[in-house]
Amino acid sequence: MNLRTYPEITCYTAFTTDPAGGNPAGVVFNGAALDDAAMLATAAAAGCSETAFVVATDHAARRFQLRYFSPLGEVAFCGHATVATAVALAERIGPGPLVFDTQVGEIALETSTEPEGSVTATLTSVPTRSRPATDAEVSASLAALRWSQEDLDPALPPHVAFGGNEHLVLAVSTRERLAALDYDFDTLAEVMHRHGWLTLQLVWREAEELFHSRNPFPTGGVVEDPATGSAAAAFGGYLRALGALPPSGAFTIRQGEDLGRPSLLRVEASPTDPRVRVSGQAVAIMGAGASTGQGEA
């Protein structure tokens, strides 16, 4: 099947089956025809936090090379756009395994059709890693968030975690603190640019296998991501590093609820495998970022 026959920008919202939920992503199947400037312009026009561009294909091997752009520039890896692209491909060439070549390495995926007809995609991340955040990193971030040290959960210490991109993980002790997010956009963007973080992974632990998350993304020109697959993978590595994985190794992240775009990310991690599996669904939507409620800056 020739994917070039499809429209230049296809929009899916990932980690949901509700067009009003999840995190919208642009998917461009004919990315090989675009140079960097055109990809950036296309991502800006799509208005989503990220757009995935398929720039090379091997249909026989079900292997695709992807690049990702936010409205402000290229991103090495994007989990929700990966899930969106995998679902879009599965709907066109059939479910089954896929391989995506990205700037951070090979991403293996499994896609399957659920009984009600929706498609689930599971990505296996590149090897994750996690390290304690420095006092300076935490202090600068808390100041930009207008939070205090007392807001944090001492059982889940601040880390910088990697799952394709680096994310600062800050766990708060109450759901109310997470809900009342009102940060200094420009100051936090400067802190994140300085340290090379893609988003902040702000979490509250409701139960051993259930977390709530919010992910500021000022480095991409977006106030907040409604669902962040790379951060979910990084968080799995973070819990592994702390020895805090649930016995099953599986847990759920609820994200986007405070934005009115609820998202569900299912994560599986092993104490011995540095890679993490992140699963979710996606659904095609009409239009792009102007209707997502993501609050572009």
Rank of each mutant, 00 (worst) to 15 (best):
P271V: 06
A189K: 15
G237V: 13
P274Y: 14
A46E: 07
E50V: 05
A52D: 02
C78H: 03
T219G: 06
L178K: 04
P7A: 10
P127T: 12
S230T: 15
V169Y: 09
R277A: 15
L181A: 05
Q255R: 07
G220K: 06
C78Q: 04
E50D: 09
Y238V: 12
P132F: 12
A143C: 11
P157D: 07
L259C: 01
D58E: 08
T111M: 03
T13M: 06
E114T: 14
L210C: 07
T292R: 02
A38I: 00
G236S: 14
G236A: 15
R240L: 03
L145Y: 12
R63T: 15
N215P: 07
T51A: 05
G243L: 03
G256E: 14
C78R: 03
G117I: 12
S112F: 09
E110S: 14
D273H: 02
D258E: 15
G229M: 02
D182P: 11
E74V: 13
V223D: 14
A227G: 08
S112I: 09
A288Y: 10
P95K: 08
F29A: 11
A32G: 14
V276W: 08
A282K: 08
G196I: 10
S118R: 13
G73H: 03
L34E: 01
T128W: 05
A282P: 05
G163T: 02
R261I: 04
F100E: 02
S173W: 00
A234G: 04
L200S: 00
V267I: 15
Y238T: 12
D151R: 10
I107R: 02
L152T: 11
E91N: 12
R175I: 13
V126S: 02
P158F: 01
A297L: 13
G73M: 03
L168R: 04
R63I: 09
W204S: 05
E106T: 13
R131N: 12
A60Y: 02
S141T: 15
A108T: 11
A52N: 03
S125W: 06
M39I: 13
A46G: 15
E91I: 11
T272V: 10
W197I: 08
T199E: 12
R63L: 11
A232F: 10
T111E: 02
L98R: 04
E206W: 00
D184C: 12
I285S: 02
L34W: 01
H167W: 09
